[in-house]
């Protein structure tokens, strides 16, 4: 459909003013919200994500695309909810206790929403108990944790250990990231995935979503 391609293209160029009227036009043409979401907005974001991954574009371009996606979602979201169409899954995210840095975590959240996930952002300075409680309350498939300080990284292990102790680790997965965090550390504490950057984090959550089913 031409209109869906136009939506995807406007998203790729970060034209947040053009996306809402195009989404409205697509609805007026009789397209269902889920199709507009999947073949317009998410298709556009997927292209943006891939171009970012291969360094054809860089972060501000991705974020402008995300803003355009949000503008389109403002129209679609009530319709999707009314139609009973669910997201790809819920992900709880936050910066761990003691850490006030949240830019990296925010970027991951924005990218996850762009990929069709529902994001519950707990903010910063989040303790292990709160992460696990929120994941249970919201039926999240994964918990994403960010740490910028070596001193706060142990909270990540606390979350992993709590999930194991409560026998939740099969259905609530963990993904970690942040400057001092590494794949080695993720393996060491038993986290399910590691994201070097926001693009890797989204790819990691997609894999976790497939694993959880």
């Amino acid at each position: 459909m031409k209109i869906l391609k136009q939506i995807a293209q406007c998203l790729e160029t970060g034209d947040d003013a053009a996306v809402p009227p195009l989404v409205s036009q697509a609805l007026a043409e009789g397209l269902v919200p889920k199709t507009i979401l999947d073949e317009g907005l998410i298709a556009g974001m997927n292209t943006v994500g891939e171009r970012f991954r291969i360094h054809e574009i860089f972060l501000p371009d991705v974020l402008m695309a995300a803003r355009a996606m949000y503008a389109g979602m403002d129209i679609l979201k009530p319709l999707l909810i009314r139609s009973g169409i669910s997201s790809r899954g819920r992900v709880v995210i936050g910066s761990v206790q003691g850490d006030l840095h949240d830019i990296g975590k925010n970027l991951v959240g924005i990218m996850l929403k762009g990929a069709g996930f529902e994001v519950i952002d707990l903010g910063n300075d989040v303790g292990a108990e709160k992460f696990v409680a929120a994941a249970k309350d919201h039926g999240a498939l994964a918990i994403g944790m960010s740490a910028l300080l070596t001193t706060t990284m142990p909270v990540m292990k606390e979350v992993v250990d709590r999930l194991k102790a409560e026998k939740l680790s099969d259905r609530i997965k963990t993904i970690i990231g942040g400057a001092p965090v590494s794949k080695g550390y993720a393996d060491e504490i038993g986290a399910d995935a590691y994201g070097y950057d926001c693009a890797q984090a989204v790819a990691g959550v997609k894999k976790l979503a497939e694993a959880v089913g």
């Binding site: 972060l59 501000p60 371009d61 995300a66 803003r67 925010n106 970027l107």
Partner: peptide, 18 residues
């Protein structure tokens, strides 16, 4: 100011200002 930009969905400007 950075926090406000993110709150208002102006992610790109927020990230650049950060």
């Amino acid at each position: 100011a950075i926090g406000l930009l993110f709150e208002h969905d102006d992610f790109a400007l927020g990230a650049v200002l950060d």
